[in-house]
């Protein structure tokens, strides 16, 4: 199995972006992940379904509600991780903090590593509260991934980027998850601010749903993270739809691009574009 670092290095050599696909664990997720990986998704985020997802929009909430109604548990999440990892791509779990606090950060790190997981993305765990998790992650060689936002100060960007392993997750817009018609105007500036303080790759998420958008984001970021669009597609048309969307996005991150270097970072003011 490849590590996140290897996947980013290979994509860089091919002068293309890394495609990361997200789905919450639950009924149908394993088949959909298999189709996504077969169609060119480079790394996978498995969502741990949680009752109060404050950063998620209606699409992911709907999928998560279904998964919870079907009884999807953290143990099921680990089983899904195991299955996807066997396909040879790095697998991260994306989760709100309380289920991990409840499971126990040390036990979770051990079990996630044993399942072949590569890391954990924690959207509501700020670095100030992350001590126990960082220690557990280091012990089990898992990549901790934290989020930076357009509203983050430069000092916070530096602090958060310094704690991230694998990649830094840049949220492209101020808002909850969900597909948007236009890509973010503030994301390139945020990516530039991250690059100024770290060599760790930068992934951009929130709002990408088409090959064209993926191509545009791959023009300035190392990874394109797609969540709600996959979730919507799986809700509507199952694994086959997910495979088709993955193929379109995989083509997008491979388009030759002029790769414009973002000049002076645009104003860091949080924008509301595309919401």
């Amino acid at each position: 199995m490849n590590t996140l670092a290897e996947v980013f290095a290979a994509a860089r050599a091919e002068r293309r972006g890394v495609l990361v696909g997200y789905l919450p664990a639950g009924p149908g997720a394993d088949e959909a992940f298999a189709a996504m990986v077969a169609a060119g998704v480079d790394a996978v985020e498995v969502g741990l379904p949680y009752s109060d997802p404050v950063l998620d929009g209606p699409v992911i909430q709907e999928a998560v509600d279904r998964a919870l109604a079907a009884g999807t548990s953290p143990t099921d999440v680990l089983r899904t991780v195991e299955g996807v990892a066997r396909a040879g791509v790095p697998v991260l779990v994306m989760t709100y903090w309380n289920p991990i606090e409840r499971y126990g950060p040390a036990r979770w790190a051990a079990d996630l590593a044993a399942a072949g997981g590569a890391g954990l993305i924690t959207p509501d765990l700020p670095p100030e509260e992350a001590g126990p998790w960082l220690a557990a992650a280091e012990e089990h060689r898992l990549d901790p991934v934290f989020l930076v936002a357009p509203s983050s100060t430069d000092a916070r960007v530096a602090r958060i980027a310094g704690l991230c392993r694998g990649f830094v997750y840049a949220t492209a817009v101020m808002g909850v998850t969900g597909a948007r018609r236009e890509t973010s105007a503030v994301a390139p500036g945020l990516v530039a601010r991250v690059r100024a303080v770290t060599d760790t790759p930068v992934g951009v998420g929130l709002g990408v749903s088409t090959g064209d958008q993926a191509a545009e984001v791959a023009g300035y970021a190392d990874a394109v993270i797609v969540g709600s669009a996959f979730v919507r597609t799986v809700l509507d048309s199952g694994a086959a739809g997910a495979g088709k969307l993955a193929a379109e996005l995989a083509e997008g991150v491979r388009r030759p691009l002029p790769r414009p270097v973002p000049a002076a970072a645009p104003p860091a003011a949080p924008g509301l574009d595309g919401i």
Binding site: V54, P123, E129, F146, R156
Partner: peptide
């Protein structure tokens, strides 16, 4: 106590 929120809210 503490602050367990998305990074986007920390500045606010």
């Amino acid at each position: 106590g503490g602050r367990f929120v998305p990074e986007a809210l920390i500045a606010a």
